[in-house]
Design a protein around this nucleic acid. Structure first.
Length: 110
DNA sequence: AAGGTGACCGGCC
DNA sequence: TGGCCGGCCACCT
């Protein structure tokens, strides 16, 4: 580890941790807050590393259409969906129902 | 050291 | 109307 807390990753984690219970957001939204509107890919990349952290609810982060694209990266196959449903979010076939309703706009709470 | 990839997004054909 | 392609930036081999 040798404290490789890159500001980039830290910043993504900071936003992801701010996601309230029962809410979800998209990679692009986070990227936008980070100042990298067109670098949503980096957000997903950071999430990959967040696997080591427990304070980062990656299961609350999906793509812009509310599709659990990264569910494949979780421990199990439907673990991500289970977590979302556990929070009151209806998920069918890796697709979040009323995504815009559960959508939460991330902010840099400073 | 350089190249390729990646949990995406948006625009263009 | 849908499918394809490029862009963006950091990490990995």
């Amino acid at each position: 580890m040798t404290d490789k807390n890159d500001n980039f990753f830290e910043r993504v984690y900071a936003v992801a941790r701010q996601i309230p219970y029962g809410k979800v957001t998209s990679y692009g939204a986070i990227a936008k807050v980070l100042g990298a509107t067109r670098s949503a890919r980096m957000v997903g990349w950071a999430m990959n590393a967040s696997h080591n952290l427990e304070d980062v609810p990656a299961h609350r982060v999906v793509n812009r259409i509310g599709l659990l694209t990264g569910k494949h990266h979780f421990d199990g196959t439907n673990l991500m969906q289970q977590l979302l449903e556990s929070e009151g979010i209806e998920v069918i076939d890796n697709q979040i129902i009323d995504f815009d309703k559960h959508f939460w706009i991330p902010e840099m709470d400073k």
